[in-house]
Write a protein that binds this DNA or RNA. Structure first.
Length: 426
RNA sequence: GGAGAGAUGGCAGAGUGGCCGAUUGUGCAGCACUGGAAAUGCUGUGUCCCUUAACGGGGACCGGGGGUUCGAAUCCCCCUCUCUCCGCCA
């Protein structure tokens, strides 16, 4: 969330930003509540001061009469304080809820626009493969080579679940190995992380574990949810921590399963494993010093690594600078890689394979992740960034569809062969 | 799952109802001493909120939440976490 003081001092900019992002917020109400809150704080502080004075005078009271008077006064003060505190709490609850609804500010260079179509292609790499035959989509390819069992997934867990089989399993493991090796060489510390997390961690990262539109599976009779990404666990790992400035940037990466309800996504193009309820992902997560220049630099590094991974796989992609209206709440700027998927839609189309967000201090403020500069007074919230190294299902689609051959076989990308242990499927 | 112990400032560690926002040690910063250092001495040393042009003033915070009391780090209840032992287990 944004800093309350910042919101109040930059009302116009915040309002304009919400407008650009297509988010409606009630700033007037927020300002009103802030005023009420200040008033209650002042009243409460004054009452507490009086209470201290009163109770402090009791041991020094010169006689029983004065003593009793002070005790009576203290009782009255206690009553008054509890009323003021209740009012303050009520106001703060509403205030915090409004505050949490305000999205992060936006990078000045991010393209302004309401929808996905306003996003900009920053650059492209590689070329669409030229087939002298009609390419199949990944579902047909998987069926042909016995790589994915959707029926069993449906029987066991329902629509949106699947079993990988045979070389698809080897490809999953190889993609993970390849991603892990790449980010590790780039200085990221690799982790496996919990697949569940506390709800307040989810909220701190910017996910809402409840409600009709939630993307999150929650565990009944607990305050835990299945994670939608290791971003949640990698970011949450430093909850309420103070990080030394000289330890930054911290570059972490994690392998996790990702669980998504995909509520509200029914009826959209969801053939095969493009949109599923569970997949495996290698995620990068960085904590940086709280300066935009610094987090911008790491943002470029993360996008660069994503590109390195997809270039290594030999997959044509475009880099998208996401438009304001399509940014999630925590993102200050977001780049997506969209790889070419020859079997997607009519005659192929680009499909999102990675996403890299700079969330500045939006997540760290709510998670309480701070750093201290020994040369300055006070503390600051660190900046956080996240990016996909490899989301297995999406990468798998791109590999299968781009590497299909005229003879019906599927070539294994060179960089994965050492882990898959063969050069082609079929 | 059962039994017990614990959670206090960067760290260590006192404190069992008012003299405690907190003794002390250590760490850190500054100053003195020194050719320089060590040692020593002195001074300072948290976070957050409200208020103020500023100096300053006020408030909250002893794992978290509630309660008792005129007054709580201290007493009571609930929760979380950590440690030890037992059980179970990949």
């Amino acid at each position: 969330m944004l800093d309350l003081q910042y919101i109040l001092e930059n009302k116009e900019a915040v309002a304009q930003n919400c407008e650009n992002r297509g988010v409606t917020i009630n700033l007037e109400r927020l300002i009103e509540l802030d005023g009420q809150r200040r008033q209650y704080i002042q009243e409460g502080d004054e009452l507490r001061r009086a209470q201290k004075e009163t109770s402090g005078g009791i041991p020094k009271a010169k006689d029983q009469d004065e003593r009793q008077k002070l005790i009576t006064k203290g009782k009255e003060l206690r009553e008054q304080i509890s009323v003021v505190e209740a009012n303050q709490k009520e106001v703060e609850t509403e205030l915090r809820s409004l505050q949490a609804d305000i999205p992060n500010m936006t990078h000045p260079e991010a393209p302004v626009g309401k929808t996905e179509d306003d996003s900009q292609v920053v650059r492209t790499w590689g070329e669409k493969p030229a087939f002298d035959f009609e390419p199949l989509d990944h579902v047909a390819l998987a069926e042909k080579h016995n790589l994915i069992d959707f029926e069993a997934g449906g029987r066991v867990a329902g629509h949106g679940y699947y079993y990988l089989k045979n070389e698809a399993v080897l490809l999953e493991l190889a993609l993970i190995q390849y991603a892990v090796e790449t980010v590790r060489k780039a200085g990221f510390t690799i982790h496996t992380t919990p697949d569940l997390a506390r709800n307040d961690v989810l909220e701190g990262i910017g996910f809402n574990p409840r409600g009709n539109e939630t993307q999150i599976y929650s565990v009944e009779n607990s305050d835990l949810s299945l994670v939608a990404t290791a971003e949640i666990t990698l970011g949450g790992a430093y909850r309420d921590q103070m990080i030394d400035l000289d330890q930054l940037p911290i570059l972490n990466a994690g392998i996790s399963h990702c669980f998504r309800t995909e509520a509200g996504a029914h009826g959209r193009a969801t053939r095969g494993i493009y949109r599923v309820h569970q997949f495996t992902k290698v995620e990068m997560f960085a904590f940086t010093a709280p300066e935009s220049a610094e987090s911008d630099k790491i943002h470029e590094k993360i996008v660069g690594l994503e590109e390195q991974i997809f270039q290594g796989l030999g997959l044509h992609y475009q880099v998208i600078d996401t438009a304001t209206g399509d940014l999630g709440g925590p993102a200050y700027r977001k780049y997506d890689l969209e790889a070419w998927m020859p079997g997607r839609g009519e005659g192929g189309s680009y499909g999102e394979v990675t996403s890299a967000s700079n969330c500045t201090d939006y997540q760290s403020r709510r998670l309480g992740i701070r750093c201290k500069n020994p040369n300055e007074k006070g503390t600051k919230f660190v900046h956080t960034l996240n990016g996909t190294a490899v989301a297995v299902t999406r990468a798998l689609i791109a590999v299968l569809e781009n590497y299909q051959q005229a003879d019906g076989s599927i070539k294994i990308p060179d960089v994965l062969q050492k882990w898959v242990g063969q050069e082609k499927i079929g």
